[in-house]
Design a protein around this nucleic acid. Structure first.
Lengths: 245, 245
DNA sequence: CGCGAGCTTGATGCCGATCAATGCATGTGG
DNA sequence: CCACATGCATTGATCGGCATCAAGCTCGCG
């Protein structure tokens, strides 16, 4: 479509050791010394405007990216035009793990709002994680966690009905937001109904209807993208099957 | 349900360096020296009878497993009884990557026929991959490939219709079998219609009907679990959308 | 103010789920 | 060796949830 804007890495360094995301991001559990080494690696930030792509399927893979601020989606596309949102990423989460397998990215990563990422050159990460056991282990955990997450999505797509899917989606989102210090009951969706639908294997109309139904049932208050969760337990019950049986 | 049978590791060593799966398994692309090191790590085999589990969700994680012979499925279960097959694994493929993230397995791995696996103690793998760059890189690639595979399944579950799903499934299966020296057009399914359905997000009746439809359309010959592929291109066309549009 | 992107809501139809019966292969015990 | 049980597969009839098609609606923005 449009050509990529020139990449303009902000020149000042970002220190993992003083980043307020260090408890959510790659550095989890690293010692002070480890962290200082990590600082030598994560040299640059990059800003991505809303609607721009961080990378596209087919691009050569060189770096992983840690979301610093903002919000992303990742999509795969099949040969025919169909595409599927495979995930939404927020602060502290890693993008680009798919690229390691073939040295090319296999998904598009699109910023859903103006965002910043930390650039993690992959070869340096491999070098460093040969030296620092903790970093190595942490990195493996993150990859494994992504696999486990994907299995959860497969369960959702394979066996849940529309209401269950949306409930699970909302609970997952609020849980992650809460871990970042945001309210557990009030959120603003950064994605369209269509993007939610694509992620959940539903059409946008179904997503919209299900939001309306949740509102009628007193589970949510929905004002466009502004969501108030009124009955978290009620949502949870939807996900765990109609429970009590 | 039933208690696990006692684990009886076969006492003789298995050398990766002389294994006929080395081009498909963890050792891909390793040098001769690297391979000899790998041999020091993969100390034991384990036999799993058809229907038995290699590990279960919740079990403490200690090792990865490379399928030597046989065939496995992995399943996740949600709190309510629902469960979902997340993959089928054949010779040379790795099991257990999900366990790294939390030090506990998050899926069940069940043998669909009498099988053997090589036991890869995970802490040793981490040690060794700090020493050998190639091994480190290869391991990362395998994890990444699993992530990419999962994304493909998400696309399938999220946006394909029954016929497309089954066609994609069969093509994927034959491709992997072919890489192992088996026929590209003749295969014996190791799993039930229900397990296929669970993997593909369909009910067993739908799987059965779709097999019958493929047979009517001259794409396959189906005799219970024995499948002959008569028109591979026809299957491929189904997957890529009704093409020509 | 008017345009357009995104959202909501309604009417209809279809794909796949569900329910139910039968068929087929394998195994077991009399 | 047969009678019967059991697990898996096939096939048919019906139903329901979600997709599809089609208007309107809302809100932000030039």
């Amino acid at each position: 479509m449009t050509t990529l804007p020139p990449i303009r890495p902000d020149t000042f360094r970002v220190a993992c050791s003083s980043c307020n995301l260090r408890e959510l991001c790659l550095p989890v559990g690293l010692s002070h010394d480890d962290l200082e080494q990590l600082d030598t690696m994560v040299a640059t930030r990059r800003s991505i405007a809303r609607g721009e792509t961080l990378f596209r399927s087919g691009d050569p893979f060189q770096s992983l990216y840690a979301v610093r601020t903002g919000f992303f989606k990742t999509c795969v596309a099949s040969e025919d035009g169909r595409d599927q949102v495979t995930g939404f990423q927020m602060a502290g989460e890693l993008l680009g793990l798919d690229g390691i397998s073939t040295d090319r990215h296999s998904v598009d990563a699109v910023a859903l709002e103006d965002s910043q990422v930390c650039v993690i050159p992959y070869d340096k990460l491999e070098d460093l994680s040969r030296e620092f056991t903790n970093l190595q282990h942490q990195f493996h955990k993150i990859m494994s966690r992504e696999i486990v997450r994907d299995h959860g999505v497969m369960l959702l797509l394979g066996s849940m009905r529309a209401e269950e899917r949306l409930a699970a989606f909302l609970l997952n989102l609020t849980q992650r937001l809460q871990a970042r210090g945001f309210s557990a009951s009030s959120l603003i969706l950064r994605m369209t109904r269509e993007e939610i639908g694509s992620y959940l294997g539903l059409k946008l109309e179904t997503v919209s209807r299900t939001f309306s139904k949740f509102q009628e049932d007193g589970l949510l208050e929905v004002k466009q993208r502004q969501i108030q969760i009124l009955d978290q337990a009620g949502l949870q019950k939807l996900v765990n099957g109609t429970a009590a049986c």
